[in-house]
Amino acid sequence: MTKQRQKAAGRQMHVFRVVSRVKVAGERRYPYRVLGLPQGADLHGLAQAIVGAFGFDFDHAFGFFDTPDPYRANVAYELFRDLEGMEGGPAPAPQGMPSETDLALMLGMEALDKLALLRETADFLARRLEEELLPRLPERLRDPVRLRLREFTADLLDVEGLEAAQAEDSLPLPPEARELLRQPGGLEGLLGMFQVVQTAPEALGAPTREEHGVTGVPATVPFERQPKWTFLFDYGDDWTFDVTYQGVQDAPPRVRLPRVLESLGTAPEQYPDYEEDFE
């Protein structure tokens, strides 16, 4: 075996599993891709590989975040940090607190049992579907269809997904703030702290965000902190993906990296033609 072949045979790659949080209509599972990246890849290269693997154009800003909700992250690796100070580069992402309206919505949601509301909504939707559909069916099919409708509505509203993510997605509020939310007028009391929160985010238990760039940062660095990160592409449209590092593996011979090693499910359209929905 020549030295060149020996080198190719011993080549290794970093492997990442990337799951889209957008499920295409008609498919039960969320699409995912398993990617192989060269060992020298940085976070910019990982982002480009993710975007390409799902068939998107690499034409927007992006970041990696340590929480399911990127806007509540404690640690962020963002392209904005690399572009700050560059002439003609886009402005940095705003780092201020949300508006009072957004804050009221966020705090109000914390006072609700979202899972119970979602289950109640799923039950209501199933009952309405039963009322419309079951009278049209033969008697022998009504019971199995009724059961299937319950499964359909729970899956449609992703009740199981919310149940798994409910605790992880909650705001980092201290116990006394949560207790205040349960009291009459408590939400108004917390909103009254809004001006203080603008200058002191820690008043609501929100730590100062740790921020880094992506260019030149090895792709595995964030995953040394925790195994799964959120990848956000295109602020505004907010395409989000769950990215998990799966370690180092031998690279396929004579294959250029990055490479899609495994693919399941249809990727969502980056720029769907909404006009077709109204034709």
Score class of each variant (00 low, 15 high):
residue 202 E to D: 14
residue 202 E to C: 11
residue 220 T to D: 09
residue 218 P to M: 09
residue 211 E to W: 10
residue 221 V to H: 05
residue 218 P to N: 12
residue 233 F to N: 01
residue 229 W to A: 01
residue 212 H to R: 10
residue 201 P to Y: 07
residue 216 G to Q: 12
residue 212 H to S: 09
residue 204 L to F: 15
residue 203 A to T: 15
residue 220 T to E: 13
residue 232 L to P: 01
residue 206 A to D: 12
residue 232 L to S: 04
residue 224 E to R: 11
residue 227 P to T: 02
residue 223 F to S: 02
residue 225 R to S: 07
residue 207 P to H: 11
residue 208 T to C: 10
residue 219 A to Q: 06
residue 204 L to W: 08
residue 215 T to C: 14
residue 232 L to F: 08
residue 217 V to E: 00
residue 227 P to A: 08
residue 208 T to A: 12
residue 221 V to D: 01
residue 224 E to H: 10
residue 214 V to L: 06
residue 207 P to L: 13
residue 223 F to M: 00
residue 209 R to W: 06
residue 203 A to R: 08
residue 205 G to P: 06
residue 227 P to I: 00
residue 229 W to N: 00
residue 223 F to L: 04
residue 210 E to F: 08
residue 204 L to T: 07
residue 208 T to Q: 13
residue 232 L to W: 01
residue 216 G to I: 14
residue 223 F to A: 01
residue 225 R to F: 05
residue 224 E to I: 04
residue 218 P to G: 07
residue 209 R to N: 06
residue 231 F to I: 01
residue 215 T to Q: 15
residue 206 A to G: 11
residue 201 P to H: 09
residue 209 R to T: 08
residue 230 T to F: 05
residue 230 T to R: 04
residue 226 Q to R: 08
residue 204 L to E: 06
residue 212 H to Q: 09
residue 209 R to C: 09
residue 201 P to R: 12
residue 219 A to G: 09
residue 206 A to K: 12
residue 228 K to A: 04
residue 233 F to V: 07
residue 213 G to F: 09
residue 209 R to Y: 05
residue 215 T to F: 14
residue 206 A to F: 14
residue 212 H to E: 08
residue 217 V to I: 15
residue 206 A to E: 14
residue 232 L to R: 01
residue 205 G to Y: 06
residue 220 T to N: 07
residue 210 E to T: 12
residue 212 H to W: 10
residue 218 P to D: 13
residue 230 T to G: 03
residue 213 G to W: 03
residue 229 W to G: 00
residue 216 G to D: 11
residue 206 A to C: 12
residue 224 E to G: 11
residue 212 H to D: 06
residue 205 G to Q: 06
residue 229 W to E: 00
residue 208 T to D: 10
residue 227 P to Q: 04
